[in-house]
């Protein structure tokens, strides 16, 4: 019991040291929710599936919030005529990539790990989104 309390104290201390970073990230999430509207997001897409897939990936990287919100926004984007390729990239990038959390990620893991993780995730997101949308449209 005593050793568990020691381990808990150490873990809590570690978490406490990250509090300013976590508060800052959550603060940026709040600013995004307050200032970026759905209409702003929809206006980014121009109709070219290739360019829209890239835009979807970048928009997903910048956007923050619960994954559920990305599905709702993705559904609205589809209704507005945005391609499934772009929406797939947007939904996937929303969860796997994040500009907002980069400072904390670098602080915790170091720059090299973060660089590799994000480059691999970026490439994978474009490939997976393109393949998933392509297969879905082909089977439809």
């Amino acid at each position: 019991m005593h050793s568990f309390l020691n381990a808990l104290k150490k873990a809590a201390k570690n978490m406490l040291s990250m509090t300013p970073m976590i508060l800052a990230i959550v603060g940026l999430v709040g600013l995004f929710q307050g200032f970026v509207t759905r209409e702003m997001l929809a206006s980014l897409f121009g109709g070219n599936p290739v360019i829209d897939t890239l835009i979807g990936t970048f928009a997903g990287m910048i956007a923050v919030g619960q994954a559920m919100i990305s599905y709702i926004l993705g559904g609205e984007l589809l209704d507005q005529g945005v391609s499934l390729y772009a929406v797939a990239a947007f939904v996937l990038a929303w969860v796997t990539l994040g500009i907002v959390q980069l400072p904390m990620e670098i602080e915790v893991f170091g720059g090299r790990f973060v660089l590799y993780r994000n480059v691999l995730a970026f490439v994978s997101t474009i490939l997976v989104a393109t393949a998933a949308a392509g297969v879905t449209l082909w089977l439809a």
Binding site: M21, A24, G34, M104
Partner: peptide, 20 residues
């Protein structure tokens, strides 16, 4: 030694809130 991480970033975000 214990140190808070991200104090500068938190300060920047507080300033962003003030500006916004």
């Amino acid at each position: 030694p214990f140190r808070f991480k991200g104090l500068k970033l938190l300060g920047f975000v507080v300033l962003l809130y003030g500006g916004s």
